[in-house]
Every structure is written in C-alpha cells, then in structure tokens.
Nucleic acid binder design. Structure first.
Lengths: 249, 249
DNA sequence: TAGTGGTCTAGACCACTTA
DNA sequence: AAGTGGTCTAGACCACTAG
C-alpha cells in the first residue's frame, strides 16, 4: 500500500522505483545485501527477466552492485560516479532570443597547432570561423573553429548559414560525423576575448573544446566555445532520486 | 576478418559492437532506418530478447533511437548528449602521493548562507572544515565544508581522520547518505585561496560544490572544492567508439 | 491491417563464490 | 554442493504508426 504509480507504468519501472525508494528511505542500507532474486521475484510476482531488468537499471544508476556468486549489494554514494550532461549546459539558450553572429569566415594557412590537430601539413588551407552567441543582445559564448578544407564538401556554406544555437551544436562538425571528443577546461579570458564577452580581462570562463572525425577517423573540425562563468554551470544529482526530466527548473 | 572478440564475450555485447561498427564505418548512416528486429534476429541468429538488449544499449549510448510503430533509426551525433564523468576528474589523485592536510576544524555559528543551505537557524552550531589536498607536495585542491552538528553522530571524528582523497570523496558527507547534489562552476580565485593553491590571484579554477542529505531529506553537509585549472579537466567521447575503460590513458 | 518496437513469461543453462 | 547472479530462448501479448 503506497505506490499507485499510474497503472500503465511498466512493471520493471515500478520495481525499480520501489527498490530505489527503499534505499532512499534507508530500508536497505549501503553495504547491505539485497534479498536474492528468486525471493524478490516472488515478492513482486514477476519473472526473473523482468526483475533483473529493474536491478540492471539500478546498477547502471550506481545504486546497486551485483557480484556474481555473492549477491547484490547497496552501494554507498560515491562522488566519482557522478556524471554531468552537457545538455543542461546549453538548454537555456534553446530559444529564439538566441542570436548567432558570424565574426569571421575565411580560409587560413594552418599553423603548427592547427595542422597537428587537424592532421594536415603546416601551411595547408583550413576554414576559419569565429562566432559570437548572444542571448537578449548579451554575449554569452565565443566560438572559434577550424575546419579541414575540402572542395568536394561544401561545409563552408552550410556552416555559414547556421544562425541558431541548435544548428551550431549539431553542425559544429557534427553533421553526419560519427566520432568526436569534448573537453571542458577553465581558463582566464584574454583581453580580446573578454571584451567580446563583455567581461573584465582575466575573468574565469569555461572552455568547451570539440574535435570531430569522419568515418575513416580523420579529423574534420576542431574548435572551442568560451562560455561566461556567470551563465553556465554543470549540475547533477547523486543518489536515489529520479534523474531530472526536462532540464527546466 | 575484423572482430575476433574472444569467444567468451556475451552475444548481446558482440551484437552491440557489430552494429556500432557499422555505424562508425558509415554502413548505417545517421537518419537511416535499421532493418526490423526480426530480420536482425535472423542475421545474428539470436532470440528477440537478446537482440533487443543490444539495441537498448545502443539507444542508451545515444547512437540509436527507437520509435514504437515506426522503426529504429541511427541518430546524428549531438553535442548535448555528451556526458562527463566526475571520476576522471579525480582519478589521477588516487594514489599514495596524495596528501590531505587539515587546515581548520572547529565549530562555528552558522551565518545566513550556511544556515539557509544546511536548513538550520542562523547562529546554530555547525562543524567547519578546511583541507588542502596536495600531490607530490604541490597543492591541487582546496576544500571547505560545513557539516550539521549532531552530538549523536560523531561525524567530526570520522571526518578528521580522513587522510586520503578516496576517503574524502566518499566521506565528504557521503558516508551512508543517499542523496546529494553536485555543481561545477568556474571562478576566479580570491587572494587567500590563490595563495594556498600556489596560483596567482584571480586565476581561474573549477569550483565543485557538493551538498548531501540524510534519509529524511534534511541537509547534512555542504561544501566545495577549488581545483587548479592546470590540473583538472573533463573529457568525453561522443559517438560510436567504446567508452574509455579505466581512466588512465 | 500489417508492421513496427515494448513488455513479459517461465523456464534453461552457465559462471562464480562460499562453505 | 548449494546458492548466487549472468545469459539466453522462443515464444506471447500489447501499443503505436502507417498505408
């Protein structure tokens, strides 16, 4: 008597919720062993596969750890298990008040760093792009990007037409490319960057670097976003509570 | 030719790898529909449940999206789907060369901010802790923490005995508490903080804030780590390649 | 209506741990 | 040997989408 989780919810989700609730309330304590699967099957009146589906999800969430031959145990909360989704980082800019202003678009000769990152010879041509992203007229992100020049692929044109953040996030080398790496660092803004972002020189900022590759593994694009410290953060919840749904709060 | 994934690998993992490979090589392109499940079952010679397990994992990884009644489709790579694991953030400090130095341990009267965050009246007693974390004698993180004072729970003592980073990450309010929130921001270091971290004043730094609750949802602990910009970053891979395993690279 | 994915069953067999 | 979790089967029935 308790959970009247609208009867249409799949059984495995209800079991997941029920067990998560017990952990949250302390009925099952960290380190404790859960009842064996056959017993839980009887308790919930389901087949092994269904029960295991619920347990697997709880394990994925880091709440349980199953050890073959020993049992299933409640895991103590570990900071290291936390994971941050980039989506929340940019969610608030996903509306019409966001403006993408193209500051520069040209081809340049690759210097040493660009050449190495893009896997091309020094001096080779590369597309160079700079954008400023504004929300309600206020600058929020400053984007720099280098794209391998390829006459057969009209990347330049499609890139130039990007005027929304969604387009930029998907189009930043991502259009159809299957591999990418992202790195988040923290930096002090240089004078020019700070000025564009309407921040004092040396202000702290996130630096979100991205690199994309094509189907053969060759680099295609490399760049980074500088994000104002006062407008961006990463947040996550650790533990039993259900993950945040939308992202609005 | 190709994958001789040691014959002991479970079938569902081999199917996941095989399909992921096709996406990575461009055999299945973003937006394309996958063959229907019955066909894939025949191709791989497995039962529906096993195939679906592989598909479910690929969906979880963001490579596929299944739509009931329509089909299963290859998803284009989206920046927003990226997720960063905090583990990598701290992994490199998980050895014996890390030293935890206790700078302060006392009880204080909660000021307005502490009181609000910990959910106690202003002026109530709280445990105050400051630690400096060093690696090879070099300061890396600066930790500040407030813990609700509770005479029945000898948190203070157990906290004082923490001398390893592992202990601190698990013990930072985490010991047996089922809920927590983490926030990553970027800040400029104040003079005192910078001095302790051997950085110039105003240097950019990560600020990892943590808040923990007990089984009834009441706040127990609140604090934050300041992390040198040159020693910390968050990195992730987007796309088909298998997620990094250990964290060492 | 035909075809798709989503859930669930009631077992089987295997791998591992503990005693 | 007994008990644990891990994998897998060969179906069933349902919900949804499309023609």
């Amino acid at each position: 008597m308790g959970d009247s989780t609208s009867t249409k919810t799949p059984v495995y989700l209800r079991i997941e919720a029920a067990l998560g609730e017990r952990i949250a309330r302390g009925a099952y304590r960290p380190g404790e062993q859960l009842p064996p699967e056959p017993q839980l099957c009887k308790e919930f009146g389901v087949s092994p596969m269904t029960l295991r589906r619920a347990l697997a999800r709880l394990s994925d969430r880091g709440l349980l750890s199953a050890e073959q031959g020993r049992g299933t145990f409640v895991r103590a909360l570990e900071l290291g298990e936390a994971s941050f989704k980039l989506r929340q980082f940019t969610d608030r800019w996903q509306d019409d008040s966001v403006d993408v202003r193209l500051l520069a678009a040209s081809t340049v000769r690759a210097d040493e760093r660009v050449a190495e990152t893009l896997g091309i010879p020094v001096g080779e041509r590369a597309v160079f792009l700079r954008r400023l992203l504004l929300k309600d007229e206020k600058p929020m992100m400053y984007h720099t990007e280098y794209v391998v020049f390829d006459a057969r692929r009209p990347l330049v044109e499609s890139q130039l037409q990007i005027t929304s953040l969604e387009g930029l996030l998907q189009g930043a080398g991502g259009e159809g490319f299957p591999e990418g790496e992202l790195t988040v660092r923290v930096v002090n803004l240089a004078a020019a960057e700070a000025a564009l972002l309407d921040q004092p020189e040396g202000a702290a900022a996130f630096r979100l670097e991205h690199a994309f590759h094509d189907f053969t593994g060759r680099p295609v694009s490399w760049g980074w976003f500088l994000c104002r410290a006062d407008s961006f953060l990463l947040r996550t919840h650790l533990g039993t509570r259900r993950a945040e749904r939308g992202g609005m709060e």
